[in-house]
Amino acid sequence: MKDLSQRDAFFGKLYEIARRDRDVILVSADMGAPSLDKFRADLSAQYVNVGIAEQNMVTVASGLALGGKTVFMYAIMPFVTLRCYEMIKVELCLMNIAVTAVGVGSGISYDDSGPTHHSTEDIAIMRALPNMTVLNTTDSVMAARFAEMTCHISSPHYVRLDREKLPNIYKAGADFSTGVTELKTGRDVCIVATGNMVQRALEVAAELAKQNITAGVIDLYRIKPINTELLVKSVSRSGRVVTLEENLLNGGMGSAVAEVLADNGKLLPLKRIGLPDGYFFTYGGRKTMQSRSGLDLKSVTDLIIKWLK
């Protein structure tokens, strides 16, 4: 799993499952990738390319599910969410149809493609939908497991996949049923991170340790519904909470954490770190963009140290 992108891990696993279960259908909006090409070539009867027509992708996916199929639909993230949002509301959430929307390109992982391809608002809108489960993938081990998990669902799911090959944090066989994993405990501050920022949080915690600050790290990969009990219990081990996401702050993962803590009377000091409100015509790769928007290792570490003082 080491050298796999989240996308190839997810669709590779889905391919294995679909070979055994011909009711598994993959609906794509004209997307290509090695793992998809294999699915398309070997399982052509289970592969439906709707063309660049995401609204129709959702309605057709819903119809296929009503006809008894286990349906996955796939596109670049803004197009499988914002572009067809009202279809997702009606055809999936309102009718509570078990279709999995799979998006690739979390945050600014389509870096130089520019803001049309960045996905920094989707967490806010997708977690607003009743019946929807929102899963944000941390590594390729998790991606493969999500493919297995979403073959056995009774409500709509949304899976976010990063475009970049990220280091694996989890070992094969890890359990992702709880929605929250406490990767590290720490007394001074707890960093709740999601997606690619989980790795960053671990790096930040190591830097903070050099300053005698012990930081806990929590991976919040199920953003809706949040495992409130486990999250509250985990963050309560320290006195302060930082949320870290490569996403806009409006309605994002940090907002979701703040809501949970407020609603449960855990009014801990909380700092949300994410992308500034805006769109990015910055090029030169994701690292450059992260540096310019304060999500690089040094910026995040410095901000937390300053905030803790």
């Binding site: 009867a45 119809g63 008894g68 279809m87």
Partner: peptide, 17 residues
């Protein structure tokens, strides 16, 4: 603008099966 797509998906599912 929704129902016809659902109908198309259902019709395709019927064909598949």
């Amino acid at each position: 603008g929704h129902g016809i797509g659902v109908a198309a998906g259902l019709a395709l599912a019927a064909k598949m099966d």
